[in-house]
Design a protein around this nucleic acid. Structure first.
Length: 595
RNA sequence: GGUCCGAUAGCUCAACUGGAUAGAGCAUCAGAUUUCUAAUCUGAGGGUUCGGGGUUCGAUUCCCUGUCGGAUCACCA
C-alpha cells in the first residue's frame, strides 16, 4: 500500500465512524503551496451525507483523524478544504520502504499484454522530424505500459509496396548508372530518397514539356515517360516479374539498412515487423468475405465499397475496380494478422499522426462490422504536427528536416556547449562521445515528449538544448550533480542502507516536499498509461528535479554533524537520482553520472 | 459545406476524473549564494483562460452558440 491508499483508508474510517457511511470516491489531492499540509480532502461533496456545512464537516473529520489515526498530526480548514499534516514518522517509514524496495517505480507484473505500433514509414525516403515524434512517442508509451506490468509487443507496418517505391525504382533505372550505397557512400535510405526526389524533378520537367504540346494537365501527367515507367513497374511487381522483384528487394534492402542505423541512434526497437507486401492479400480475402456476407457491396465497375453513412461517415472504397487493394485493405489484413499472432493482447495502440484520424475511425468500424470483438480495443494514438520556428515543413518546398541530420546537429551542439563550459577537460573520448550523444538526444527526445501528444507543437532546437528550464539537459545535469554527492559520500564511508524510522526524528520542509513528489511517481505512471501521454512523465520528472534543487540549495548536506541525518540525506539523494533515472528511461532518455 | 481537434502571461507549455488567489520555463527587472558540479536559488512585473450564454457550492475543464487556426472528407499512402 502506498501513502495515498493508507490515508484514504484512514479518512474512510473516520467518515464512516461519524456518519455511518462513506462515498467511495473521496477527493484527496496535494495541498496547495500556500497552505500548511501535504494532502487535502475536498469536503464539498461530503456535505450531502454529513448534512452540515463544508467547513464544519471538514473540522469534524479533522478532529476525528487526529484523535484516532496514527498518521495525521494536525490539520487546518480553509473553506471546504481539509488540509492534513502527516506525522514525520509516517514520511520516514514511507521513505524507508521506498529505499528498500528495489523495484520502486515498477508495478508488479500482471497478465495483460498490449501491442504498440509506431514508426511505420514509407520505404521511399528517409525519416524526418515528424517520424522522430512518432518514434519517441510510441517507444515511450511502450515503456510506460512495461513499467505498469504489461507485456508489450512493439511492432510496425512497413509500407514496402506501391507506387511510391516504384517511383524511386524508375528514377534509379533511368538515371542511377548503377549507383549503390557502397559506391556512393550515401546511406541507403537517403540514396533511395534521392531518386524519389529525382523522379519528381524529371516528372515535373516532362509534364511541363508535354503541356507545351497542347495536352491537358491530366494527359500530360499520364504520358510522362518516367511516370509510365513507374506504373509499368508496379504492374510488373504485382505480376511477380523476377527482375523487377529483384530491384525492389535491393532498393528496399538499402532503405532497411539505413532505417536500422537511424533506429539504433534513436534508441528504439521492434519485436516484429509487418510488411504490407505480406498482409495485403489477407486484407483482400477478408474484404471479399465481407462482400459475400453482405457487409460490403460491389459497384457495377467491380470496385468494392463499405457504406458507413448510417454511422455518420461516408462510403469508402476497399478494392479498386481492377481488383487491386488500397491502404485500408492492407490495414484490415494487418490488424487481423496481429491478433492471430498475439492472441493474448488486450488491445492495440496505433501511433500515427492526426491527419489519419478519419482513416482509423473507419478502420475500427469496419473491423467491428466484420465481427471482430477486439475492434473496440484498438486505439489510435494520434499526435499533432511538429512545426519549426522557421515555419512549417513542406516536402515540396524542401523544408523537411531530416531525422539523421537533426540528431547529428543536436549532438554537435551538445558537444559545443559542453566544451565551452570546460568541465570535461582531460576526459577521454571514450567518456565524452557517449556523453554528447546522451545530451543531444536527451534534449531532442525530452522536448518532443514534454508536450501533450494530441497538440501540435513548435520544436525549437536552440531552446531544447538549453541547460536551464524545462529541458532534458537540465534534468540530466541535476542527476549528475546528485551522483557527485553520492560518490563523495561513498568515499567518506557514509552508510545509506538502513532503516531511518525512529533514528531521524524531524524533516526539513524541503525534504518533506521533495519526498511527497517522489511518492507521486507510481500514480503518475498510471495516469500516463491512461492518457497514453509521456508528457505526464516529462512534467513530473521536471517537477522532481526542481524540487530537489530547492532541497539542495537549502540544505548543506556535508555540513550535517548528526551522522544519522547525514546518511539519511545521502540516502534521500540516492532515491531522487534513481527516480529521475527511472522516469527518464520511460522517456527513452539516458542520464549521465557525470557531466 | 460536413466531421474531428485546438485556442491559457510577450514566447513555449502545465493545470490529475469540475476544486482554493490559473502555474512553470524563457525573456525583462531586482537580489542571494562563489559550493556538495552556479548548468543553482529567492523575489517582482506580466492574465477578461478567444467572445457570449447556460449547468452549481465552485468552470480553463461539462453543455449550447459565435470567431479564428489546423486536420480530414481520393479507385494516394
Amino acid at each position: 500500500m502506498n501513502l495515498e491508499q493508507i490515508l484514504r483508508a484512514a479518512v474512510e474510517q473516520s467518515f464512516t465512524a461519524l456518519y455511518g457511511q462513506c462515498p467511495d470516491n473521496l477527493q484527496i489531492q496535494p495541498t496547495n503551496q500556500e497552505f500548511e499540509g501535504s494532502h487535502t480532502l475536498v469536503c464539498f461533496p461530503l456535505t450531502k451525507i454529513s448534512r452540515k456545512g463544508p467547513e464544519e464537516t471538514a473540522r469534524l473529520i479533522g478532529d476525528h483523524l487526529v484523535l484516532n489515526s496514527v498518521i495525521v498530526n494536525r490539520f487546518n480548514v480553509v473553506k471546504g478544504f481539509l488540509n492534513l499534516v502527516l506525522n514525520d514518522s509516517v514520511w520516514l517509514s514511507v521513505f524507508t520502504s521506498i529505499l528498500k524496495n528495489k523495484s520502486f517505480g515498477r508495478l508488479p507484473r500482471n497478465d495483460n499484454e498490449i501491442m504498440v505500433e509506431y514508426s511505420s514509414p514509407n520505404t521511399n525516403k528517409p525519416l524526418h522530424l515528424g517520424h522522430l515524434r512518432n518514434n519517441f512517442l510510441g517507444y515511450s508509451v511502450s515503456q510506460i505500459y512495461d513499467a505498469i506490468g504489461y507485456k508489450v509487443h512493439k511492432v510496425q507496418i512497413i509500407n514496402d509496396r506501391g507506387i511510391h517505391i516504384c517511383k524511386s525504382m524508375a528514377a534509379w533505372e533511368l538515371y542511377g548508372h548503377g549507383e549503390t550505397p557502397e559506391s556512393s557512400g550515401i546511406k541507403g535510405d537517403h540514396l533511395v530518397g534521392k531518386y524519389y526526389v529525382l523522379f519528381n524533378t524529371h516528372f515535373t520537367r516532362e509534364v511541363a514539356a508535354l503541356l507545351q504540346t497542347g495536352l491537358t494537365e491530366k494527359e500530360a501527367e499520364k504520358q510522362s515517360p518516367i511516370m509510365q515507367r513507374a506504373v509499368t513497374l508496379l504492374i510488373q511487381w504485382e505480376q511477380a516479374d523476377a527482375t523487377v522483384l529483384k530491384l525492389w528487394k535491393t532498393m528496399n534492402g538499402w532503405v532497411y539498412h539505413g532505417f536500422n542505423a537511424t533506429y539504433k541512434r534513436m534508441g528504439v526497437d521492434f519485436e516484429k515487423l509487418y510488411y504490407e507486401s505480406e498482409t495485403y492479400l489477407l486484407g483482400k480475402e477478408e474484404v471479399l468475405r465481407g462482400v459475400e456476407n453482405g457487409t460490403f457491396f460491389k459497384k457495377d465497375d467491380g470496385s468494392v465499397w463499405v457504406d458507413l453513412t448510417t454511422d455518420g461517415l461516408d462510403q469508402k472504397v476497399l478494392l479498386r475496380s481492377d481488383g487491386t487493394s488500397v491502404y485500408m485493405t492492407q490495414d484490415i489484413g494487418t490488424a487481423i494478422l496481429r491478433f492471430r499472432d498475439f492472441p493474448k493482447i488486450t488491445g492495440q495502440i496505433y501511433t500515427v499522426g492526426n491527419e489519419q484520424e478519419y482513416h482509423f475511425k473507419v478502420l475500427f468500424l469496419i473491423l467491428k462490422k466484420l465481427g471482430f470483438e477486439w475492434a473496440s480495443r484498438c486505439y489510435h494514438l494520434s499526435y499533432g504536427m511538429v512545426d519549426l520556428p522557421t515555419g512549417r515543413m513542406k516536402s515540396r518546398e524542401g523544408t523537411v528536416v531530416d531525422a539523421d541530420d537533426l540528431m547529428q546537429e543536436m549532438v554537435e551542439e551538445a558537444e559545443k556547449q559542453t566544451r565551452e563550459l570546460g568541465k570535461i577537460e582531460g576526459w577521454a573520448d571514450a567518456e565524452t562521445i557517449p556523453l554528447f550523444e546522451m545530451i543531444g538526444l536527451g534534449a531532442l527526445k525530452f522536448f518532443l515528449l514534454k508536450v501533450d501528444p494530441k497538440k501540435k507543437m513548435l520544436f525549437d532546437p536552440n531552446e531544447s538544448i538549453q541547460l536551464q528550464g524545462f529541458t532534458g539537459p537540465f534534468i540530466q545535469y541535476t542527476h549528475a550533480r546528485i551522483r557527485a554527492i553520492v560518490r563523495k559520500a561513498a568515499q567518506m564511508g557514509v552508510q545509506t542502507n538502513r532503516d531511518f524510522t525512529g533514528i531521524v526524528t524531524a524533516l526539513e520542509p524541503a525534504e518533506r516536499e521533495c519526498l511527497q513528489v517522489i511518492c507521486q511517481y507510481e500514480s503518475k505512471l498510471l495516469e500516463a498509461a491512461r492518457e497514453y501521454s509521456p508528457a505526464v512523465i516529462a512534467n513530473y520528472v521536471y517537477e522532481l528535479a526542481k524540487s530537489y534543487n530547492k532541497f539542495y540549495q537549502n540544505i548543506p548536506i556535508f555540513n550535517e554533524s548528526d551522522p544519522a541525518k547525514l546518511s539519511f540525506r545521502v540516502a534521500f539523494s540516492t532515491i531522487v537520482a534513481d527516480t529521475i533515472r527511472n522516469a527518464m528511461s520511460i522517456l527513452g532518455i539516458a542520464v549521465p553520472d557525470k557531466m
